[in-house]
Design a protein around this nucleic acid. Structure first.
Lengths: 200, 200, 200, 200
DNA sequence: AACTAATCGAGACGGTACGTCCGGTCTTGCA
DNA sequence: TGCAAGACCGGACGTACCGTCTCGATTAGTT
């Protein structure tokens, strides 16, 4: 066990947890990351600031938890082809980043992660690691089907998929219409040859 | 024009400009973006805060100017092949983002850009537009050589190149060793066929 | 009556009462009134905060109770002379205020009393009223002995005795060595003539 | 000089000083010492909190300064008799403590003084020392007139005068009507004989 | 012996004030 | 007018404390 000592005293109120997450998400959508304040979160949640700092060491951790709370990456389904699998995977990534409170928080959150080693570790160990696992799975499946020979470096593929989505959304502001299909076509073409991209 | 009125009084001291840029760059490296303060910049530069705000409207503009001050994207040379051109282009992007004060400022600056339309516009009109021009040039050159048929959507290629570099450096933390070569190989393969990737 | 309902359930643990008083007194001596906190009292006493607030409505009441807990004003003995009686009375007042936890609490407690009508009433009805009764007794006894003619205003005498002691201890910081004798001499002289002061 | 380095930069705005003192005094009268908050003072004065803490290290110092600001003890006039001089002196003390913001602050301020050595020193060196000087003057004048023989301990007289007034106002709550006359009569009687008290 | 109800230590809860810090503006005196 | 120094307002931060409430475990008196 993480703690041998028996827990005593009043238990954390799970409604407070929920209220905090909900209030933070609402405020992210309403005022954005830059104007998010701890006092406003507490007031919106009907909660004292102490209840926040009992759960999270800093405002950044609180926001990280709220933004990430209902992001659930689905394991990519076996669509029968590498390209189909990639489309599903990319669409999941896009929907994670493009909608809801997460979209409002991502740029600010990224900055905060790059200034807090603890947050960096948590981010890498949850999202990044999971996404990488899925990518490895998709690539191995393609190898099993005979679509590709050697499995390429999963980190490169990861950077390529996640980075392209991220750049479209937050760096270039060019939108993501049809991004999943076009990006999947390109990646599949790179791995198995351009003819794979022509049967779109 | 703003400069139509005849200039009166003392002229701006260009040493102040230089000292500000230098101080900001030093502090970015020493304490990082999150702990960068205007007072510290002024103190380090031996300058009053008014001198800063006479030049820049906000701390974000000041930091933006300092971070990109000595970033110069070179027009990609004609290496004779699409892949060679891409390698050169990507290496330039990597060197822009991976070293010096810019690397320390990028995540924070990105957050600030996403909250200031003026800064967003400046960012898009300088860096993004220039990079896109270079990409279009490389692709057209490849078409001229007959390496590729149709020119693909330059925005997608842009997102792919810039995003992959960005993700490697700031999202996944997997480093960028050999990134330019491997990424260029992959992209070239996607556009002209996997055989292009085998002659690495 | 409030106690008409039949008592049910567990009885108050008298050891808790004692531990609270003791812990408060210790902390008053150690950290002083200003830095006294309810949490610290509870921790020192090995007691939950609820046990405190089951007994006292506010921190002020708790401290009041602890500070005056072992203060017992003795009825002044008949020493045979007004001056002797006054000396005994003043010495009792001094010993109440100058020693132990009470001395550490008095200035802070006075401030709190002046902001809580309930506490004001309790203070006036216990300490002040009792002291006044003793003063009246001493003065009547002196009148009976023929030392003085009319009995002076007991409130003025009270203010004079208590106030002088208080000022010496808490306002001027000049100590109280020999204060009882010298003050009693002065008061006796004022009431019966200065010759009474010469036989010190 | 206390500081050899030449002062540079913007000067303290004396209107801020005045506004702070005035706001604190108003709030003392309106809400009392216990409910006085720094934020309320700043808001009332139209001032940032930093401007307060640039001038005073703590809330207590700020309140001390405001309560004491327009308390000016007049040197007691020569009325021709010890008793007259005492009446004037006591009335000055009463008017200092009984009216205005000081009256609202005194109990709380006293508690704070007894918890801050710096404030204690300032209090002793200003008010207490000045008052003592005046008392010594009055007593010496009486000696010069031949009203009294030896000059009694000025600290005892000080404690007696100040303490009696203080106790009447803040300890016993019996008011101070005619206090100056009656107390002066008593003290004069103690020093020169009770016959002096009969010609009231 | 089972039930009931108030007590216990521990500690989370809402609220409020504290003193600190920082961003962007303004003022002073010198050059 | 520019400039260094630094005071100014506004407002968010994270901490501390008060008095209340909740938890699970005692500890009595009542059935």
């Amino acid at each position: 066990m993480t703690s041998a000592g028996q827990a005593r005293g009043r238990k954390r109120d799970s409604r407070v947890d929920q209220a905090l997450i909900a209030a933070t998400q609402e405020l992210l959508l309403e005022v954005g990351y830059a104007k998010l304040t701890v006092d406003a979160i507490a007031a919106r949640a009907g909660v004292g600031k102490a209840a926040i700092y009992r759960r999270y060491a800093t405002k950044q951790e609180m926001t990280f938890a709220a933004a990430i709370h209902d992001l659930t990456l689905e394991p990519p389904p076996d669509t029968g082809s590498l390209r189909g699998d990639l489309v599903a995977l990319i669409e999941d990534i896009v929907s994670s980043l493009a909608n809801g409170p997460a979209a409002a928080a991502v740029p600010g959150l990224l900055a905060d992660i790059h200034g807090d080693p603890a947050l960096t570790a948590r981010f890498l160990n949850t999202f990044v690691a999971l996404e990488r696992t899925y990518i490895v799975g998709v690539l191995k499946r393609a190898q099993g089907r005979g679509e590709i020979g050697d499995v390429p470096d999963p980190d490169l593929v990861h950077a390529l998929l996640l980075g392209t989505v991220f750049a479209s959304l937050f760096l270039l502001g060019v939108g993501s219409d049809g991004l999943a299909q076009r990006l999947a076509a390109l990646v599949a073409a790179a791995l198995v040859g351009p003819h794979a991209a022509s049967d779109a």
